[in-house]
Structure formats: C-alpha cells, structure tokens
Amino acid sequence: MTETHANAGHLRELISFRIGAQEFCVDIMAVREIRGWTAATALPQSPSFVCGVINLRGAVLPIVDLAARLGFESSETSERSVIIVCQIGEQVVGLLVDAVSDILSVTDDVIQATPDVGSDTAKTFVRGLLAIEGRMITMIGLERILPELDLEAA
C-alpha cells in the first residue's frame, strides 16, 4: 500500500518502520535490503547500541540497535525483529528495528522541520517529521549512526 501526497516539490520515497510504539522512516535510496533477525556476534569494547556483527553473504556487517542509538530503551530482539541493511557512505550497516511498516511516497513539503528541542540525540539524527493519517513519523538521517571514535565513551 502506497500513500501518495503529491502536492508540490521533489517526490521521494521513504521506508517507515516501528520501534516500540514509535514510527520512523529513512530514505529508501539508502536501503539495500531487509532481512530477518539472526543472532549477532558481540564485539568487545563496543558501545551498548552496537549489537555485534553478522554474516551478510560473506561480508561482516555491524548491527546497530536503533532504539538504543536514538536514546530509547534497547529493543528486545525476537524472531520477528527486522534488520534494515543500509548503505552509509562506503560502509554497509544493519539497523535493528521491530518491524517494517510501509513505503511512503511524499514530496518535500510534507516533511516538517524538526521543532527546536533540547535533545542532542534529536539534533544528531532527526531530519524532519511527517504527519500521516494522524501518526507522527520521524525521519532519521543515517550519517552518524555508527559510533565515532570520540563518541565512544558516551
């Protein structure tokens, strides 16, 4: 099911997904594939939001628990958890989410600017808000999803 809001401006497609009761979305162009959860191998000395690494057809893929990364409660992983495999620059990273819900086709004018909030996490990751059928969907920017060396202590 695709909802189109063709008002004006650049049309873009987003993939929306759910973490707990919250809905988020990312640009579909960054998404390489979506796959089911497989147990990850824990990495020593890693931030809590890095679940570990899994084998993606021979490549070693780090998995980021998006809930923990965004400052929510860590996701409880289950067989129904989903990994969204994303291309971020040169690297490929898996995002752990609860479920993928929708593909949205929206124009830029539907995306509202992030209201001024005090949270650093929000400033780092939130790129905008969408109001669709009374639900709020938060658009996430992926550039800083992986830990940077200086952020590791956080």
Binding site: L43, S46, V60, Q91, V93
Partner: peptide
C-alpha cells in the same frame, strides 16, 4: 580472514 574495518572499524584485541 574477513575484514572488520570494511563496514565497521578496528576493534582493539580483535
């Protein structure tokens, strides 16, 4: 042998 750095980064001790 597979690289960890390709998609992540170096991990000390690994």
């Amino acid at each position: 042998i597979k690289s960890l750095e390709a998609n992540y980064r170096q991990v000390p001790g690994v």
